[in-house]
Design a protein around this nucleic acid. Sequence first.
DNA 1: TGCAAATAACGGACGGTCCGAATTCCCGAG
DNA 2: CTCGGGAATTCGGACCGTCCGTTATTTGCA
Lengths: 348, 348
Amino acid sequence: MPTPTLRTLAKELGLSRTTLSDALRGSPRVKAETVERVRAAAKAAGYERNPLTGAVMSQLRRSRGQQFRGVLAVLEIVGDSHTALAARYNDSLMAGISSRANDLGFKVERFVVGAQGLTLQRLDTILHTRGIQGLILLPAVGFPDLTELSWSRYTAVYADYFIDHPPLHCVCSDHYRSMIALLHELHARGYRRPGLIMEISLDERLQFRWEGAFLAQQKYLADITVVPALQLREITREAFQAWFRKYNPDVVLGHFPEAMDWMRACGAKLPKTHAFVCLNSLRTSGDCATLDFQTPLLGGRACELVIGQLLHNEFGVPSQPSLTTIPARLIEGPTLRAAKAGAAKAAR
Amino acid sequence: MPTPTLRTLAKELGLSRTTLSDALRGSPRVKAETVERVRAAAKAAGYERNPLTGAVMSQLRRSRGQQFRGVLAVLEIVGDSHTALAARYNDSLMAGISSRANDLGFKVERFVVGAQGLTLQRLDTILHTRGIQGLILLPAVGFPDLTELSWSRYTAVYADYFIDHPPLHCVCSDHYRSMIALLHELHARGYRRPGLIMEISLDERLQFRWEGAFLAQQKYLADITVVPALQLREITREAFQAWFRKYNPDVVLGHFPEAMDWMRACGAKLPKTHAFVCLNSLRTSGDCATLDFQTPLLGGRACELVIGQLLHNEFGVPSQPSLTTIPARLIEGPTLRAAKAGAAKAAR
DNA sequence: TGCAAATAACGGACGGTCCGAATTCCCGAG
DNA sequence: CTCGGGAATTCGGACCGTCCGTTATTTGCA
């Protein structure tokens, strides 16, 4: 007896091959009762669907044909505050998302949710009527709650460290590793007294990854003089200069470019006697060394994740959320000694 | 302009789709000159053939559908040492890999590389002749170098924190977040003097993520009494007991279950007066609270990554490697007070 | 020149998918 | 009871890249 195929099995059951295919794949287009009947018959006949063949066929069928295969929704959750920095960050993510989505044959639409935008109920119905199933959530201040969406219809990725309501896959920069790599690089360039300044609120939402990496690495790099991190609710000029004069770090890491002026006011020459590295390139204007979070890459990765799940027909909240990260890249600048020739090595 | 297909391209060239297909695959059925012409035209039109699609179609035609699966190679890189623990870890990863691969229509084959196994050159030819393109690398001791494989043919994922030769996507447990979540949970259960014991070599390959998270969290949890971490090349009974007596931590976190006996020898009652949490469930035998790395899930995620890239026809070393992580899960045990009713909350 | 053999290209069929069209079902209004 | 319209189901057509048998063209040689 030859191995059964979709078509032979369909003939036996008096259904079309399409219905069989959809039923075995669990498509909502087929009535639940029919799905049961088909699955039982398939099992009896010893028919097993080949998921690899299915995936390939799906790809094939999808990609040719039209220009676009679907639409992704990018959700921007706006609360009461809404800084210019966050806007730059989000725009930069969007650029990566749009570009990668376009490569993979998807279009992107942006929706604003929250205080000044749509309610979740309204969004739910809009997405439903438009048939949009893939969601990318831009970073939101605080800990957003999106449990009210009908998640069984969607597959989503959050572009920040974590989200608990509901727990979704996340894509974010790897702050821990970036800090480790940066300290290694500074060490290789001869710096021995690295100092960190940080507003607590900035590190808190990262679960203190900046400081955690800094503290751990201080202990294990050779010949390091330990400079305690300056962590405050708010970094002021006075607090900074007191700290700077007391510990005299040879390289300062922090978010605020103003610190360069404060250092110079204390008599520091950049990069001759001291160095400064800004921890977020979006805060600078090209006048200092800084870390580039490569947000377009992050956006691209988020796209790949969502689209991958769409292609596998996986919807709903994942059973175990995962976190995908990309390390930041060091951008050279006039506030940092160049790498010694030969010792030059890209940050890991 | 729609993406070209075999048929449209064939019409343009005035040839049949069969000839195109054969030519692109380099079949001897087609005249060499025609092959050249076809390949040039395909390149000009931006047509790229997908080898996985080809393989699936081929097997489909040849063997009447069923029983065809794609193949992934799992590489085990064995150096001189080879502990039982590593073997358990790898087997557990394998279980997750096999299961997820099977769901997605792939088979898995395991290859041993290194000192007691295949040379890289030999592996390269084996993979080539077998037509295997997807690779999953199991964790190796030290920092393995696999640059000698012909990477343009493969797409791969490394199941550990990082690999630099070459830089590949990685999948690994999220030690930093696991530690943060664990400390939060312990804090919620009333523990205020957490202590960490760690062999330096174990944390070093994690870039000190255990200790980094521990140090950072000690600073920012409320009402914590700081107990310095016991970090040694080797943890001995004497060193441990001296540390334990001096600082009297109310909960000890570490890799070695022997520590429980040492604590008891100092008069501690588990879980009445003190608690112990093992940081790696594979080291325990069910007699204490511990962290489960959920290795099968990690393996599954690695599969999804590799297969996703195969389906998208993406080979070679990625331009920017990413790291995908999953947090560990706390397993309750008789060495830890239960969560207070109401305050119970799954670890993030 | 005649004709078999070798060479080159073609057309049909295939399995599983997507998409739009067709059919059936349901339910309230007239 | 009939009709209309919209939702729920099912169906048919078109499609992908491959294999394999067939057709058309050229070559080899008596």
